[in-house]
Every structure is written in C-alpha cells, then in structure tokens.
Design a protein around this nucleic acid. Sequence first.
DNA 1: AATCCTTACACAAACGTTTGCCCGATTTTC
DNA 2: GAAAATCGGGCAAACGTTTGTGTAAGGATT
Lengths: 345, 345
Amino acid sequence: MRQKPATIKEIAKKLSISISTVSRALHDHPSIGLITRQKVKRMAEEMHYEPNQTAILFQKGKTYTIGVILPELSEAFFSSAISAIEDVANKRNYNVLLAQSHDDQEKEKQLVEKMKNHRVDGLLVSVAKTTASFEHFDMLKRYNIPVVFFDRVPPLKDIHYVACNMETGSIEAVNFLLKKGHRTIGMINGPGTLAASGQRKEGYIKAMLKNRLKFDPSLIVSCDLTEEGTIQALNGLLENKRKPTAIVTFNDYVSLYAIRHARKLGIDLNTELEFVSYANLPIINFMDHSPIASVEQFPYIQGQRAADILFDLLNSNNDEEQTAFYKITIESQLVMSPVKTQAAG
Amino acid sequence: MRQKPATIKEIAKKLSISISTVSRALHDHPSIGLITRQKVKRMAEEMHYEPNQTAILFQKGKTYTIGVILPELSEAFFSSAISAIEDVANKRNYNVLLAQSHDDQEKEKQLVEKMKNHRVDGLLVSVAKTTASFEHFDMLKRYNIPVVFFDRVPPLKDIHYVACNMETGSIEAVNFLLKKGHRTIGMINGPGTLAASGQRKEGYIKAMLKNRLKFDPSLIVSCDLTEEGTIQALNGLLENKRKPTAIVTFNDYVSLYAIRHARKLGIDLNTELEFVSYANLPIINFMDHSPIASVEQFPYIQGQRAADILFDLLNSNNDEEQTAFYKITIESQLVMSPVKTQAAG
DNA sequence: AATCCTTACACAAACGTTTGCCCGATTTTC
DNA sequence: GAAAATCGGGCAAACGTTTGTGTAAGGATT
C-alpha cells in the first residue's frame, strides 16, 4: 500500500487543466479565477496532495535549512542555545541541521565543508576551543552563505556575531563582593588564549580601580579549567601574601573544583572564603556548597539573537558585498544563588 | 564576487562533451574511458565543482536525511543519544533533522507532520511523556517512512524499537545492596504510568524472592519525580514499621533530593542509609554525597543501535509490507560511583 | 465596428542530476 | 572478411515545481 504522494501534475490531469494553473491556484495567484482556484484546492485536498519539498527547494535554489555547528551538545549552555535556535527556525518554517565539532578544529572544518555541500542557506557557529585558523569560514563568503557566530567568536573583523560581554558581569561580581565587605578578592581565571579570560580580568581590574582599590596582579591566577589545574591555582592563591577572603572563578566547574578542594583543606566556606563564578549552570543547584552568586550568560537569548540576525541576513538582498556587520553584545548579569538550607554534615 | 558553484553542465561545455559523460565519469562508470574520466575529474577540480545536493536529492527522490524527535535536548540522556545518532548518520553521509517535542503531544504531532513534509527518509523517535495516542505515527507507514523508537517506546505491537531493560539493573541494584548486608531495602519509584516504573519494581521483587526474602509492598513508594514528592516519599519510608537501611531511587535526581532531605534530617549517610539509583548522570559527580551506585542505561548505545536499525531498514528492500520488527532491549547495568574523598564538612 | 484592456488560463523553460537507450567505431570471433 | 561483441560516449527523458511569456475570450472604450 505504498502510496506516493500526489503531485500537481496529477491534479492537473484529473481536472484537465494545466500544471501551471494548479500551481498558481494553490498559491492564490490573482490571475486564477475563483472557481478554478476552489476546484483545484478541493481536488488537492481529496488527493492528499503534499508539496514535494525537495522539488521546491531544488527549484528555488534554497534549502530552507540553516546549519548549526557547536562544540558540544551535552554542555548545558549549548543545549539551551540550540533550543532557542530551533524555536526561531521553526517559527520561520526553516529546518535546523545540527552538528558538533567536539571542540576539534579538524572536525569543525569538515563540518563547514559538509554544510556547504548541503547548501544550507546560512550558518550559525560557535567555534571549537582548539580552532586557531579560520580560513574554512572564508570559503562560505564566496558561496554567499551568511554566517553568524555566537558565544565563542573568532577574533576577526568582518563577521557577524552575538556574544556575551563578560566585563559587566565581572564588574558586578567584584562589586558584589566588595559590598559584602571583602577587600582581598582573588580570581581563578581561564587560559589566556580565550577571549573571555581577558574580559573577565578587565572587569575585575575596572571594578577595583573604580572603588579606589589598588589592583594586585598576584591575586589573579589562571588555570586550564581542569580539576588539577584548579587545585593548583587555588593553592597558589592561598599561599599568597595577601590571602583572599573571596574568589571569582572562571566558571561553575572551576568553582566546584575549588570549593571541593577548599573543604578538603578544612576551610570554612561560610566565614573564611566565598566564591562567585560564571555560567549559572544547573549543577550549582546540586552542590551542597555552591558559589554564592554566578554570572548568567543567557544562552537562550544568545541563540535567539544569533538566529534572528541570520534570518535578517537571509531576507535582506545580499547581492551586494556585505559591508555592515552585526556585532551584538549581550550584557551578562550577576545572579544570586538560590538560598539553600545547608546540609548538616 | 558571488560565484555560484560550477555544474556538470559547465564542465561538459568546457570539455565539449556531453553532460551524461561528465556525470558518469565522476562516478567512475565503467563505460567511460580512462582518459576522458581523468580529463573530467581534473576539470571538475579546477572549476571547484561541487555536486548540488538538492538536485541530487530531488532526482533520487530521497533526502538523505533522517529525522529525530525527542522530548528534551537538555536532558543529559538525550543529548548523549543524539550524539550517537549523529555519529552514525555522519558515517553514512546522512543528515540529521532534529526537533524537540518538549514532552508535549501536540507539538510532537506537528513535528511528525513536518518531518513527513520534509520527506525525511526515516525517523527516530523517543515519545513525549504526555503522548497517549499514536495515530500520528501510523500515517508514516503509508508514506513508507520507517520509524524506530528508542528509550521511550509506545505500547504498540508492530513497531521497531530499542529500549533499555530496567529489570536487570534493578535486580543488580538490589543484589548489590543485599550483598552489602542490607535486609530492609526501600524503593522510591516513579509514577505508575511510566513503563519503567513497572520494570524497576519487577526487578526489585524478583531479586528479593530469588534471595528467599519475602517482599514487603510497604517498602515501595512512588513519587512524581519532583523534589517535594521525593521528600514525601522518603518521609513515608522512614516512618515505615520496618525502616529501610538502603533505598533504591527511580533516578539520580530523586536520589539527590532524597539525600539532601536525609542530611537535613541528620541521618548519617555513611552508616544509617545508603542510596542506589538509575541513570548514572554526570551530576552525581558533583554531589558531596552521591548514591553509591547507579544503573547505567547507555544512552549512547541506545541511540547508536536505533540509528543502525533505521539504516538497515532504509537499505533493505522495503517494498513489501513489513512483517518482522526489530525489538531490541539493552541490558542496563549497575555502575559503582567513583570513590570520592568525602568533604570534611 | 475596430481598438484596447482585462481576465483567465496554457505553454514551456528552467533548476542540476541520473540513467535507460541508442549509435558509431573498434575489436574480437569463427 | 563478414557478423558479432565490446567499447566509449551522446541523446533525451525524468524528477516536481515555479514563473515569464503567450494568447484566447470577453468586455469596455472610442
């Protein structure tokens, strides 16, 4: 009982009219009379007509598909972002072609190639950690495939992007700690190769200076984001001449590792040392001692904005060379951790 | 500088040969001589020829795309499964069209419709929690679109599916606790509407009986998987005449809630009460007191197998009515939690 | 009554590729 | 040396849809 879906050709034959009339009738083209139009529509219904998407796509030279390349779907940030992208795409009746680079530059390169071959109409990318060269994205320009980067943005000039400004959040975080009375604030930062590390550091410095406190470089240490690296970094801070009473960490994971280590050292997290971090991941709800606050980076909104921009580019007449570029920064925001009744022991 | 990719037509003109020859040459068709073949290939390279996928798909009447509908991407289980599906699909040069039902039956219905319109070659589905009727999947049969369900499988006869058998894991969990000396083992189960709840319970009972212990129904309570529900369930168990010394929980979240509550009650988790759960989610690594073991349900493998089956169906001559159905159950498996140096407190 | 618009539809090309069939030229076969 | 097989390649249809152009019939305008 394999019934191939009906085609407009069959409808035309059945009604003894031309194919083009059927096509136009279904699209409510004004040059088709009302009676014919209705006749066609009724017949289409009756024959269970479904427009053959692949034929339409082929004919129009568009795929009505946007590609999304991101590092790792299992990271909460990205799965949230992809949800947003999907929602936006669905609203526009576009499809989403998803692929993970697993933070591997080579894989990312292949995926770009694949997306291009699949003739996606546009591309949304959050680059892999290891990506150091960006020629594979240049190629897309020649094929007139617009790209919007989000969150992890390459350091290029002529690109569209949406990213989260870490500085504001960083300033908020430090201000928050200062208001709580802390004067010696440490920072466990990420590797210098990440743009985000620089922004976090900048925010830290700005907040200190604005509060007329001098900036002590020895209070900022960087780590490789692993547990071991974090432990080393924390140890470094604790051995510092000026021992910090609060620490800002690069993200919730680093916070987690640091907190775990601090407890092992017998440090009282209620009185001796407080933590603030970035990301505001769900995991902090599961920790007995979580950072007291975390900087939210709004993955859903980032995804949404990025997708919106991409559609804007798709709809604009992009026949002329692109000269203006969307460069959107979303302000990050400090969020207090939900008050938890700390476990007894 | 918009350069539309070259077509075989242009290659043909440039070489003054026919289109069909170019096509066949590129496909290494035996009826094309070696010299011509190489000439064509060189020219194709030179002109940066890229086969137009949409044209091919249209011509072949296939989309080389499989659809995936699942409840929620942000759940670790599914993001892991989708990774597997993606990997399998990539290996076969297929694309993945992803969509989330957000556990809503209506949305799921729409997505199935959309997938059908997009003429996906096949479909992978994990049904939404709320889905109670399944006609929307029947339609796919008429269009000859094979469907493979995974993890959350509808209670239908003539379907292909991959699921995880909870019984084995449940038995292992109980056996594990019995061997550790526990005699009064409680269970915080999920809602009765979920098939998994029944399986977990069955496994529990079987394990008890096999060890010549009598089964006490009052030791099994169900909850709605929320934190409040879990607390109530735990309280119920603790007030039982026979107070359990170990508890099997429906999943890691329930375990988390229960552990949190138990600690608040001042219960010593090292001596008084032990937990075992299901899912083996990454979160248990972040908890100070995690369940001592968890039943792994192999999301990656489930996704992989489901995808494999789908491709098998796609490649088989499915012109005749399907009569045999893949019904794969993967055995779940108890996994010990990594030993953690418990925090001092 | 001849001209000019509309109206309402038909014709056919085009999108890029695959593939069944045909055909001329060379080689093989007896 | 003629018939047959093989080789190498061309022709054209087909996939389903959209859309520019052509063209009848009918009405309005002069």
